[in-house]
Design a protein around this nucleic acid. Structure first.
Length: 508
RNA sequence: AGCGGGGUAGAGCAAUUGGCAGCUCGUCUGGCUCAUAACCAGAAGGUUCCCGGUUCGAGUCCGGGCCCCGCAACCA
């Protein structure tokens, strides 16, 4: 058997101090569409996600909820893993940073950075407000006082911390950016990170005193400290591949220095961590860097930033429950800009659904299959040549997918579906039947066209796409890669079709 | 302060080197009956943020102004 090319994609790991956010749903649906697309190209895909489970906030949240920390993280990890079913995700790996192997990998990663001379113990100075019982940054202070407790003195605390020598990596990062012109997509985020690194990097603290923050991975050979969550969490991208023991899988999927292979998907708030900090950490550990970081925007709600006080927070489980998995996937991918912030609005959601899924693809499927059943006994007619310019369609489709431009991908599919509606109006098959004309060629063209629509939708709304295919009598087991499926005429003449329930019921 | 992006129809966005201002949704009218009251055709809807300049011609180039957004490090 031909060896499949490896493809590796990972989301960021959501921090489980709150329930899943619609913004993370966007990230993981985008990653899922990419993963499914790559599988259809014939690649062997490892698609990683998981949960980031250490750190002070989680430690406090568990205490606050009055449950022990293991119970807390188990409950939350499950809440995130439920998204798999709810959003029909195809991830292969779900890594929890509390996982034993991950802990071991993070420690080994630390050791290597340390052995290479990029970790140093220093005095860490912080400003501490006793009123809040929190460390404060300068930007949080007002005339050297905590804005919440202006009558209390800010305490200066000194403690020993380990620091990562981030400052040593400015040049290497800039060089990598210069050599990899598409390292960060989209370009405006790439410029942002370049500007950030060009300003010069400052070393950052990567440990906390265990007595103050017990919930973390122990620093190797120093039981007084635990790792700062970022340092620990980022290592998941490679620990999930079995690093450091499974060198083969690591090299195959993460790639090598000459041929990096990892694609990371992250939100704009994560730009720095993913495309600079983590890359410097990889350099420090003498490991290959990522191939590419795709950065999506945020979702605002009804034109405003989501906030609990405004009461406009969108809960992914609620909208999935209301509209269905594919409707939500379709909106996230098709109605929001891939590279910028987008708006979640109920009105726009319902208009988008009605226009493109109910009136568009759903209705088209229904009318074509009805005609085949009514006029041709449910049997696919005589093969015809391609008059639908499918080659052109597929070329554009691939181009858009390569750029993670899901909005354009869906626009292309909608236009293609519309062209089938136009043909039906022009050819008036019902009239031709009355006149005793043979329309089996026309019906072949339409059913084969519909097959192309369904294939193109497989990465976007898999469940509905599969339904269309099975109504066309196509078995999913027999599906080939895109390069074969995009050919005109794969639908067999004489195949039996069977119309099903409405794919996208009208909203009432 | 600075660096970067932007202001185009009711909404979301397009317009290679300056050359009739387009697309999707929504709205209105007509047609059709295979279809999920769906579909198809057509129409209405623009001072392209403002002022000035260059040009035969400016959304696009130049000068000035107003407004919005991102970045401006340790907040997972």
């Amino acid at each position: 058997m031909e060896k499949k090319k490896p493809f590796y994609i990972t989301t960021t790991l959501p921090y489980i101090n709150a329930n899943p956010h619609i913004g993370f749903a966007l990230e993981i649906v985008q990653a899922d569409a990419i993963a499914r697309y790559q599988r259809l190209l014939g690649k062997e895909v490892i698609f990683n996600t998981g949960t980031d489970e250490h750190g002070l906030k989680i430690y406090r949240k568990a205490k606050q909820e009055g449950i022990d920390i293991q119970t807390y993280i188990d409950i939350y990890a499950k809440k995130f893993d439920f998204l798999k079913k709810a959003l029909n995700l195809s991830y292969t790996n779900f890594i929890r940073t509390s996982n034993e192997h991950h802990v071991h990998a993070a420690q080994e990663f630390w050791r290597r950075c340390d052995a290479n001379g990029f970790i140093e113990k220093r005095i860490y100075q912080a400003k501490y407000c006793v009123g809040c019982e929190l460390e404060k940054t300068d930007s949080e202070l007002n005339y050297l006082k905590c804005s919440l407790h202006p009558n209390m003195e800010i305490e200066l605390i000194n403690e020993e911390n380990y620091f990562f020598l981030f400052s040593k990596f400015s040049e290497k990062l800039l060089q990598y950016y210069a050599e990899n012109l598409e390292f960060v997509i989209p370009n405006h985020r790439f410029n942002e990170i370049k500007a950030f690194v060009e300003r010069g990097l400052t070393d950052f603290s990567i440990s906390r005193l265990k007595e103050k923050m017990p919930w973390g991975i122990a620093v190797p050979d120093d039981s007084d400290h635990v790792m700062y969550v970022w340092f620990d969490a980022l290592v998941n991208y490679i620990s999930t591949l079995g690093w450091p023991e499974d060198e083969k899988q690591f090299e195959t999927f993460w790639g090598t220095k000459d041929e990096p292979n990892a694609l990371q998907v992250a939100g704009k708030d994560n730009l720095r961590q993913q495309s600079a900090m983590w890359q410097a950490m990889l350099l420090a550990a003498d490991l290959p860097m990522s191939k590419q970081v795709f950065v999506h925007g945020f979702i605002i709600s009804e034109g405003q930033k989501m906030s609990k006080s405004l009461g406009n927070v969108v809960d992914p489980y609620v909208v999935i429950d209301k509209y269905g998995t594919d409707a939500v996937r379709f909106y996230l991918l098709g109605a929001l800009p891939s590279y910028d912030d987008g708006d979640w609005s109920t009105q726009r959601f319902e208009e988008f659904y009605t226009a493109h899924l109910a009136n568009g693809i759903g209705n088209l499927t229904s009318r074509i299959l009805t005609m085949v059943e009514k006029y041709d006994d449910g049997v696919v007619g005589n093969k015809t040549n391609d008059t639908l310019r499918t080659t052109d369609f597929w070329d554009k489709y691939n181009e858009a997918f390569t750029k993670f431009d899901f909005e354009t991908v869906i626009g292309l599919v909608n236009n293609f579906a519309r062209s089938l509606d136009e043909i039906i109006s022009e050819e008036k098959p019902w009239k031709k039947v009355k006149n005793g004309e043979d329309i089996s060629g026309l019906l072949y063209q339409l059913t084969e066209g519909l097959r192309h629509v369904a294939i193109a939708l497989l990465p976007i709304i898999p469940e509905s796409a599969e339904k269309i295919l099975s109504e066309l009598g196509i078995s999913l087991d027999g599906l080939e890669t895109f390069d074969k499926e995009r050919q005109w005429g794969r639908l067999k003449q004489g195949a039996k079709v069977e119309k099903g329930e409405a794919l996208f019921p009208r909203l009432v």
